[in-house]
Design a binder for these strands. Structure first.
Length: 274
DNA sequence: GAGCGGCCCTGGGCGC
DNA sequence: TGCGCCCAGGGCCGCT
């Protein structure tokens, strides 16, 4: 399931494969993926060139000559590039054919992914309307603002970190890892965290996501990069998908609970409720 | 306004 | 073997 590191890995892969290519035509087999006007989407893309690839949080950005294509992979969205013949695949929903004969195919088993086409000047307003928080970097992710937002909220810290408003890019896997490293129980209310715990969650968010980008993301179940290769970050997971196993820090058994409808993994000794 | 839960969607795993 | 149920989860939406 792609979180920020996986999306960044896909972005880097596509950058090597499709920059400078001119779109010849589109084939959209599952129109519900397109969230902006479908006719407009189909009419406006042909003729445009892929100028650069970007990313904001978990959103993948295709900067075209005149527009920006915003793609969210949600659970299982993937891109594959074929220089020639395109194989028939069950879950291929959008085909972007280039003038040089290559094709970029969007596949998504669960059909959760979305695509929007916007004018570049509307991009900032688009993310503003989604209340998307800062990128998880030292420059953008301000500790004081983070601290002040947590103080005002009774939401469980895990749910709060997942809602993308405090910081962009965390998903269910990395949020469990961040909270384990920061020794904070996922059910704790945001406003119950001490200044020291808040700082740890902040620092570990930057650390974990940065490390995961370096490792090419995590391959859990089905994720692969644009070349169909696996990431290796899962080898460094300490709690996610490790229920019943010993905590590497204290030896207690990792537990799994449901929190806001999401599977949540934690060490009951290192991450006390208080 | 904040917080929560249902929904979308399909494949895999499991029990019967 | 085949069927039905449950689970996985990001983000949107509606309800309290």
């Amino acid at each position: 399931m792609p979180e920020l590191p996986e999306v960044e890995t896909v972005r880097r892969g596509l950058e090597k494969l499709i920059l400078g290519k001119k779109i010849a035509s589109l084939d959209i087999r599952y129109p519900k993926i397109i969230k902006t006007d479908l006719d407009q989407f189909q009419k406006e893309l042909p003729g445009q060139v892929i100028v650069s690839m970007g990313r904001r949080g978990k959103y993948l950005l295709f900067y075209l000559t005149e527009k920006v294509l915003i793609s969210h992979l949600r659970m299982e969205g993937k891109y594959f590039y074929y220089p020639g013949q395109v194989p028939e695949r069950k879950h291929a929903h959008v085909f972007i054919h280039f003038e040089d004969g290559g094709t970029l195919v969007y596949e998504d088993v669960r059909k959760f992914g979305t695509m929007d086409l916007l004018a570049p000047e509307l991009l900032e307003a688009y993310f503003l309307s989604k209340k998307l928080g800062p990128e998880p970097t030292e420059q953008d992710f301000d500790l004081e603002i983070f601290m002040s937002a947590l103080k005002k909220s009774k939401k469980p810290i895990k749910s709060h970190l997942l809602d993308q408003t405090l910081v962009a890019g965390l998903g269910n896997i990395y949020v469990d890892e961040v909270l384990w490293r920061a020794k904070v129980h996922p059910s704790r209310t945001s406003n119950s965290l001490t200044a020291q715990e808040t700082r740890k969650v902040h620092d570990q968010t930057i650390e974990v996501l940065g490390q995961a980008v370096e490792k090419g993301g995590s391959t859990i179940r089905t994720y692969t990069n644009a070349f169909g290769e696996d990431g290796t970050m899962q080898e460094f997971h300490q709690v996610y998908d490790k229920a019943g196993q010993a905590c590497s820090r204290c030896g207690s058994i990792i537990e799994k609970i449901q929190l806001s409808g999401r599977g949540t993994h934690f060490c009951p000794k290192c991450q006390r409720r208080k």
